[in-house]
Simulated scan of single mutants.
Amino acid sequence: MNITVFALLLVGLVLLVVGAEALVRGASRIAAVLGISPLVIGLTIVAYGTSSPELAVNIQSSLAGQSDIAIGNVVGSNIFNVLFILGVSALVSPLLVAQQLIRLDVPIMIGVSCLMLLFSLDGNIGTSDGVILFLGAVSYTAFLIYQSRQEKDAAVQDEYAKEYGAQPTRSLSTWLVNLALVVGGLGLLLAGSRLLVDSAIVIAQAIGVSELVIGLTIVAAGTSLPELATSVIASMRGERDIAVGNVVGSNIFNILAIIGLSSIISPDGIPVLPAALRFDIPIMIAVAIACLPIFFTGNLISRREGIFFLAYYGVYTLYLILRSTEHDALPIFSTVMLAFVLPLTAITLAIVTMRALRKRRERREGL
């Protein structure tokens, strides 16, 4: 392996990010011209568009028979989205969390994560499982569109209108430019996904780690760069609902649409390695569940909680490195995590949630 492989990996990542940006920009402008509301554009076109690199990589991996990269990409992206992207965004500015996210979208994210685990128990996410997941994506999208039309919170409406409400002209040149962005973005995504998958396979073979680990780390972080950019920029601008909603919506889309389509396209479905079944998918579910009490306490992701998220992503990445290299420190590290860190975290989250519930009950009784 030489420097050329890493260069191709970097080029692939750049093409994915640029392609996603072009696709989102062109599609959102076309939607605005057609009179689609800014809230619908933000919740669907933008949230799903930022997941287009994951979709491109998974389709390429499935067609190439590299199912470990496909599974690792989605599971790793979902973990990265919550722990790293929300962690960084909260450090930029504490994130307010809308009630709809707490009551509906986060429970849906937890539910579809558990559904993925259920479908994986036999070691394979088959075609019929993929159809169910993809139909779930269609239903969820329809629900988002319906829900957006019922949105009464003026602050949420204004936030999305400010970001996605610009009305471009309806001239022929505008249509052509936006269509060119969509088509060009798709082309870049296809080219970038091929380069990324091929170079990732070579790197995995050269350094002696599994394709699953490469998918969970390099590929997952790389394909999540559009979500990172969208959420951090939204946080900097004070558009906190967009910052959080983009992550939750992308995680749901990753499982329902991307895993669904990947398993439909792959002739034999997507095999799931025991390592992913025992550890990585449960971690993805645990991360989704951890969002609920953190989001629930004060409807805010504070800077302290952002640091908490980032620290856990660092611990998770360190575990993957130790596991892939079969390092001598792995047994001790695993024992400390299982016996002390994870139980302490669960107890802390439970105490914080109970305190928040008690305060809410006291406020209601005081009214």
Rank of each mutant, 00 (worst) to 15 (best):
Y140I: 01
I45P: 15
N58K: 02
L277E: 08
A311I: 04
I59T: 06
L322T: 08
P53V: 08
R363E: 14
G72M: 06
A56R: 09
A180M: 14
Q147F: 13
S235Q: 01
A90H: 03
D280G: 03
G366K: 15
L16E: 04
T317M: 15
T223Q: 06
F84H: 12
L63M: 04
I36W: 06
S139V: 09
D122G: 14
G12L: 02
Q99L: 12
V197E: 07
I264Y: 13
N254R: 07
V33K: 11
Y140P: 12
S61H: 06
G76F: 14
G185P: 03
D68A: 10
I201M: 15
L349A: 02
Y316S: 09
I108M: 15
F80P: 10
G260D: 04
K359M: 11
I125N: 07
I264E: 07
S171N: 13
E239I: 02
L96H: 15
I265V: 06
D328T: 12
I242N: 01
I85N: 03
D129F: 13
E159T: 10
P282N: 12
N251F: 00
V244M: 00
I332S: 10
A234Q: 00
A22P: 00
A275R: 07
L367V: 14
Q157G: 00
S199A: 14
S77M: 08
F84Y: 13
I307W: 03
C291L: 07
L121Y: 02
I125P: 10
P226C: 14
L55G: 12
S77Y: 09
L15Y: 10
E159I: 15
S193Y: 02
L135H: 11
I294Y: 03
L133H: 08
V24Y: 08
V57W: 04
R355Y: 14
A229Y: 11
S77A: 07
A288W: 01
A221Q: 08
R149W: 13
R360F: 02
L320D: 04
V97F: 01
D241T: 02
I307H: 14
D198V: 06
G249T: 00
S302V: 10
I30G: 04
L83I: 02
T297W: 11
R170K: 12
R364G: 15
G298E: 05
I351Q: 03
Q100C: 11
I132N: 12
A276L: 01
I85K: 12
A229K: 05
Q150H: 15
G126T: 15
I207Y: 05
G111C: 10
V24N: 08
R240L: 12
